[in-house]
Design a binder for these strands. Sequence first.
RNA 1: GCGCCUGUAGCUCAGUGGAUAGAGCGUCGGCCUCCGGAGCCGAAGGUCGCAGGUUCGAAUCCUGUCGGGCGCGCCA
Length: 567
Amino acid sequence: MSRMLDSTPAAPPATLRGAIRDAIERALGEAVAAGDIGPLDEPRPIEVQRSGKPEHGDYATNVALQLARPLRMPPLAIASAIAARLQDAAGVVDSAEAVAPGFVNIRLADPALAAVVDAARREPDHWGRLAGPAESTGRHVNVEFVSANPTGPLTVGNARGAFVGDLLARVLEAGGQRVTREYYFNDSSAQVRNLGASVLAQREGRPIPEDGYHGDYVIALATELPQELIAPRPGESDPDARAWAVGHWASARIREGIEASLAHLGVRFDAWTTEGSLATEGWVDQAIERLRDGGHLYEQDGATWFRSTAFGDDKDRVVIRSNGERTYFAFDIGYVIQKFSRGFDHLIYIWGADHHGTVARVRNAAAAMGFDKARVEMILTGWVHFVRDGVEVSMSKRAGTFITLDDLLEQLGVDAARWYFASRGANVNMDVDIELARRQSSENPVYYVQYAHARIASILRKAAEAGLQPAASVGGLLAEAPDAILARIVARFPEVVEDAAAAQETQGVTTYATELATAFHAYYRDARVIDAGSPERSARRLALVDATRITLASALGLLGISAPEAM
RNA sequence: GCGCCUGUAGCUCAGUGGAUAGAGCGUCGGCCUCCGGAGCCGAAGGUCGCAGGUUCGAAUCCUGUCGGGCGCGCCA
């Protein structure tokens, strides 16, 4: 065991897979040093993958296949040289075998496996969370999402971003990064005035403007509108002043509703930045000055343009219109400066697919302002296309025909909805039949996973009543089939989290949770946990089953989904 | 026209260069003396849109092509 740590002074591997990788690297180095295989020109990353079949062991590496060409040696010979050295590695490797065409199959040592499973129970809160206390080492990421205009309740379209952003934030946190959840709140656009005009018209019984807002919520707002906002203020000349005032009042009310909806979903934002603040605090001007100083701006037709084409964009972009107003784009890049000045290392934006056209220009502007383009990342979400009885449900906030996030949560429930979005890639388009989704919500796989959790909780309760307590370790239990199989899946959880954080995706977590639940249900069938006739084995099985429960709860918790003790 | 996303089982989707491509739902057939049947076991169902290419190896990478979505404003 200690050899393992000796070889990795910087950071001990967080996963069994990492420990295996280290062992392979050492074996490879020894094989080279001994002259078994030729010297390597350059170090190459070692891939360790989980074996697909039990006969192939637990892990496999393809280094030999990768090295065959540069070393000009048969892959199987390289594999054999590595496998022979791996046998010597005591800690995590039980046995290693070179097989055609050149894989090295590796079997885990039971003690190492037991140690990982026991770790889950010793520190359930840290189980699967990587890099431990990462305050000092993890980068600080700003994830901006939803950012819907405060002109109506959140729709399911906005909801996609809410789920994707929150899930991303959770996965990054589990990967040891600090995350700030940010909402860009557009409080000063013409749409706010438009909203005000619509509410005012509704209140005063006038027809709502053609491009105004029509939803039921407009009627509700009109009813609640305070008297003092309706009356024109003395000495006010701007004909739009009333509309602006009402709009600001209405958007504040809507923001409260948005926050409540998001809270219901379990999403809390750490920061709300308003568009107005970017102007009043000078960030927009600062961005423009910075571009000007760098020679990236030019004047044409009375407007000021950013030379985005110099960075590969297909056309240049206006930052100041000929009427003197700064464009939305100018605010975007002012916001970039604002965010970086707040100390973030990395910015992630969750945008709808319709915004893909603005990705390049914002990243280009960031580069022009001297920031690393790689630190400005956009994730585009696919569409949620709703149909009812085979007919598309058209959604328009202005027309008032839309399905709200609250509707969705009411129909599906938070857990089922979260699972639904977590199990799909962010950028795929989804067709959702509302009636079907409702009917299927009771058959959602999330309940399958929760059921496994509740079932284990029940076993643990029953065992306690019988006076049986889990053992401190599962050691000694893992040599044979039902226990060995379940333990291996439990032990893989940190790798799943690692992969999810690296890919910035959650599908792997739902897939894994389903696999673990399935494995538990099979285990339950094959292995008697509470067995008065064998108290020693019962105690160890209770430990294994408890580790399984903790892992299920951790996976669900990572997705913001509850893990009920009973259901 | 140009650009981005996308195409995997009847349906909804996993699979980010590895060994026999998976899950849920749906369909068909089995399992309740025993720790929770919201469970278990089995079956049927695939030219991974199509055609080339790279590679020891391609659903995955490259090129072309076809279908679907979105974008291409001194709007936000």
